[in-house]
């Protein structure tokens, strides 16, 4: 009996060791990628890099101002559409989980989440770019909004589903009409979760290249015209990286670094904000 116990303890320890080893192992690629991009990119980043547009080949310097501006504008426009629509759909799904409509729209959300981003790009190309007669930031934003929607819908739904029914009953029993219960009680109580879904979706789309290739195309000039082609961070990385020039490759690393930092900061800020605003139930 004694020896058997020892054996069992040993097995238990071995299992624990294996689990810890793999938990550690998965952080290795991430850290290597991070370090490599930082090493390659950080030397490129300076004020000139952030405030200048790409220069013609042969000239030294040049930057990513057009891409920064483009990404900002397109992500903003996509959010303006996707955030309210996604939140409302998420509210519906959490409030009426047993209806037919909820079942089918939930199914659609899941499928939409699985649609490859390049397919979203092609679809928007046929629906928006072709009828409008040209590449535009609007088309790019629509593609990005479609990518954001499932993430916002699901995170809103999951967050609100976790809130206890007693909260809603408390408000309803005070004679508060249903729409005010949702706006004044349910959404504020789930705000931290909804917000983290929104920032997560932004972090997800800011690096998307494929849906922008056929929609907003790209633009070597700084522009705010949303009906014309516009550049974006992932697209400028693509352009610089696939060029035959070494100094352009360096610029691609710089842009990658900026993109990475943006996603990193967004994630950290989200974590801090959600912790601060988390409602203690």
């Amino acid at each position: 009996m004694e020896s058997k116990l020892g054996m069992r303890n040993a097995k238990s320890m071995a299992f624990k060791g294996v689990v810890i080893f793999f938990a550690f192992l998965i952080t290795v690629p991430l850290i290597i990628v991070l370090l490599y991009i930082i090493k390659q990119g950080i030397t490129q980043v300076n004020w000139h890099f952030l405030t200048h547009v790409p220069l013609p080949t042969g000239e030294t310097g040049g930057g990513i101002a057009n891409a920064l501006m483009g990404s900002f504008i397109m992500v903003m426009m996509a959010s303006v559409v996707a955030v309210p629509v996604g939140m409302l759909a998420g509210i519906y799904l959490s409030e009426n989980p047993r209806t037919k409509l909820a079942y089918y729209s939930g199914l659609c959300v899941d499928i939409l989440q699985g649609v490859p981003s390049i397919v979203v790009g092609i679809v928007v190309y046929f629906w928006v770019v072709k009828p409008l007669g040209g590449f535009s930031a609007i088309a790019g934003s629509i593609a990005l909004a479609i990518m954001m929607l499932p993430i916002i819908i699901r995170s809103t739904e999951q967050t609100l589903k976790l809130l206890p029914d007693s909260l809603k009953e408390a408000a309803l029993s005070l004679g508060v009409p249903y729409h005010r219960v949702i706006i004044k009680v349910i959404v504020p109580c789930g705000f931290a979760g909804i917000l983290s879904g929104i920032t997560l979706s932004i972090a997800r789309i800011i690096g998307e290249t494929a849906p922008l290739l056929f929609t907003s195309l790209g633009n070597n000039f700084l522009t705010m015209k949303i009906t014309g082609p516009m550049d974006s961070l992932p697209h400028i990385i693509f352009t610089y990286a696939t060029s035959p020039y070494d100094d352009w490759h360096d610029l691609a690393w710089g842009a990658s670094f900026i993109l990475l930092m943006f996603v990193l900061v967004l994630n950290i800020v989200t974590k801090l904000l959600t912790r601060k605003w988390k409602i203690q139930l």
């Binding site: 206890p164 007693s166 909260l167 009953e169 408390a170 408000a171 309803l172 029993s173 005070l174 004679g175 508060v176 009409p177 009680v185 504020p188 109580c189 705000f191 409602i279 203690q280 139930l281």
Partner: peptide, 20 residues
């Protein structure tokens, strides 16, 4: 119904103050 609920107070099994 909304008027009725506003006129009649209700206290539930579990305390449910609004956490926000």
């Amino acid at each position: 119904a909304i008027y009725v609920r506003a006129k009649i107070g209700m206290v539930f099994q579990r305390p449910n103050p609004f956490p926000n």
